[in-house]
Design a protein around this nucleic acid. Structure first.
Length: 299
DNA sequence: ATGGTTGATCCTCAA
């Protein structure tokens, strides 16, 4: 390796002084390690019945160690939620449940403050699909919104109308979050396949409420307000599948779809440090048909 | 092409 004379080290004396780049590199490394201590891992997970899924949920919490987990489809009333087993792992628990279906929850190692249940905009809506709260990191707080967007099938029909109406209300809440200019995110089961690339077999979903052009346009009307998809931002070409049907060997054939998303406000996106999908737990004992999607924010 | 799984509940619905 021949010695290449740097234009910054013109003589032997100045060569002893650390180069400008080395100093910058050192400062950057120092800043990175400082940020590492304040990283918060925030996950969304549609567990498809918290009681049937409790062992799998506890296993995942122990191994993935999220600071915050937003759960959907707990299929449990608040009183029936198995909070104590989760609290034993060091989590605070807040639920917004209903009998039989739907239901959302927030698990957090740090205190859960200013909890709001129910998506604003329709007082007659009885379905438990929205919970939001403020959680403080080491230096800064994040407003986390957990959502279970209506499936919408069959189409056309009242269920699809409800989906689109719910998405219009979601857009209104999203606009408020952006206007607040806070570190905030909306994460959950959106029941939306944003693009053909987010499905192994997009043709099979052409007529489905998860992939109809009108559904995807409604989703884009929300993201285009100024949200960043955590996974897509860091891994533009990664496979986004987060759901595999129980039927017809979908998991075995990797016939999946990406419908669980984390949308960040600009203030949250600036603090994004990592994102991923825990797809391996789909192969575990009595798995949910969804797997967790997570991101890491420097807070 | 059409098949076929799971959870919660009250035997059928929702996904």
């Amino acid at each position: 390796m021949p010695f290449v004379k740097s234009r910054f080290t013109t003589d032997a004396r100045s060569a002893k002084i650390p180069a400008y780049w080395d100093v910058q590199e050192m400062l950057l490394a120092r800043r990175r390690s400082a940020q590492k201590q304040a990283i918060m891992k925030i996950a969304t997970f549609n567990i498809n019945g918290v009681k049937a899924r409790l062992p799998a949920l506890l296993d995942w919490l122990r191994s993935a160690e999220p600071d915050i987990a937003l759960l959907q489809e707990i299929k449990s009333e608040d009183a029936g939620f198995p909070a104590s087993a989760i609290e034993d792992l060091g989590y605070n628990v807040r639920t917004h449940g209903q009998k039989g279906f739907n239901g959302v929850a927030i698990l957090s190692k740090r205190p859960i403050e200013d909890v709001q249940c129910g998506l604003p905009g329709d007082d007659s809506d009885e379905q438990a699909r929205w919970i939001e709260a403020t959680i403080s990191g080491e230096h800064e707080a994040v407003r986390v919104c957990g959502l279970y967007l209506p499936n919408g099938n069959p189409t056309p029909g009242p269920k699809y109308d409800y989906k689109l109406a719910w998405m219009a209300r979601l857009r209104a809440r999203a606009q408020e979050l952006l206007a607040d200019e806070q570190i905030a995110l909306m994460a959950g089961d959106y029941n939306i396949i944003p693009q053909a690339e987010d499905a192994a077999d997009p043709k099979a979903w052409r007529e489905d409420a998860l992939f109809l052009p009108e559904s995807r346009a409604a989703y884009r009307r929300i993201t285009h307000l100024g949200f960043t998809d955590a996974l897509r931002s860091l891994h533009p070409t990664a496979q986004s599948y987060s759901f595999w049907d129980y039927q017809a060997g979908a998991w075995r054939k990797n016939n999946g779809i990406g419908i669980d998303h984390i949308l960040l406000t600009p203030q949250a996106a600036d603090r994004l440090r990592g994102a991923g999908i825990d797809r391996e737990i789909r192969a575990g004992e009595k798995p949910s048909d969804h797997v967790p999607v997570w991101c890491e924010l420097a807070l």
